[in-house]
């Protein structure tokens, strides 16, 4: 559980770390949309190279990116098997009994695989290079235009930042309870299905109880300090848009436009 990489900030210094969080969130959104344009393998190669360059600039180790992909492998395998079996277009490649695999299915599955990997790596780069608080600040800024139509920007940002803040705490708590139950003879990785379910119950119930307890404590602590979501706030941390941000954003827009154009031309 300690090896959970997905969504963890890595405290080092790099070009990507120093970029404006608004830029990073905006770019991720654009790139996520671009991933779903069907620009063929050439397009994905281009995007892939771009993502590799970003990863290199962020100084994140390959092993750390692989760790982020690992927990998703099961879901990816599941998705891919379904796709392989249920897309029935194009030429029949293999046919064993009721299993029929078509060439279109292979192609589509490959696309899905590439898309998922790209999405995970890009998201990991964002979360690994941006402090959770900066991330929320960025989101709040990006959402601020919607304030005019009555969207509770600050509340949403506060909710996100509380949720992000408590992910490591809950992971720690999970580990603590797992250890406590392991000391009572629970083996989380072994045993029959019934034993496994019981061992998960012995983890989840204490975890829920402490999470609710924490939520209540936090609410009380905020209330006793007179927290008011509508209050006007100033910020210690100011976001400053730098020239490197403009250049980076231009690069992202270029890549996205090329992909969109490619998807229509090809």
């Amino acid at each position: 559980m300690n090896n959970m990489m997905f969504g963890k900030y890595i405290p080092i210094d790099s070009f990507i770390h120093r970029l404006d969080p608004r830029l990073k969130i905006g770019s991720l959104l654009l790139l996520l949309i671009a991933v779903f344009f069907d620009a063929g393998f050439l397009g994905y190669a281009l995007l892939g190279i771009f993502v590799i360059i970003m990863a290199l600039l962020s100084h994140i180790k390959v092993s750390q990116i692989l760790k982020a992909i690992k927990p998703m492998l099961f879901m990816m395998a599941f998705l891919m098997i379904f796709n392989l079996l249920f897309i029935q277009q194009g030429n029949l490649l293999v046919s064993i009994g009721f299993i029929k695999i078509y060439d279109q299915a292979v192609l589509q599955t490959l696309y899905i695989f590439i898309r998922l990997i790209l999405i995970i790596v890009m998201t990991t780069i964002l979360t690994a290079t941006t402090k959770p608080l900066d991330l929320t600040l960025g989101i709040e800024h990006l959402l601020s235009p919607f304030k005019r139509i009555g969207f509770p920007t600050h509340e949403v940002a506060m909710m996100i930042s509380i949720a992000l803040r408590f992910i490591p705490t809950l992971l720690e708590e999970t580990q603590r309870i797992m250890k406590a139950q392991a000391s009572r003879g629970v083996e989380f990785s072994e045993g029959s299905l019934k034993e496994k379910i019981l061992s998960i119950v012995s983890l989840i119930i204490p975890l829920f109880i402490s999470a609710f307890q924490r939520a209540e404590d936090l609410a009380n602590a905020m209330e006793s300090r007179n927290y008011n979501p509508e209050a006007k706030r100033t910020r210690y941390k100011q976001l400053i848009w730098k020239i490197s941000d403009t250049i980076s954003f231009a690069c992202v827009i270029m890549i996205c436009s090329v992909l969109v154009i490619m998807s229509f031309v090809l």
Binding site: E173, R176, I177, K179, A180, Q181, A182, S183, R184, G185, E187, V201, S202, I205, P206, I209, S210
Partner: peptide
């Protein structure tokens, strides 16, 4: 590990969290 866990009983800090 089970035999070892039985041999050495560990009570964590604030063990009331382990009740379920």
């Amino acid at each position: 590990l089970k035999s070892l866990r039985k041999k050495a009983g560990l009570v964590f800090q604030f063990p009331e969290y382990q009740l379920f």
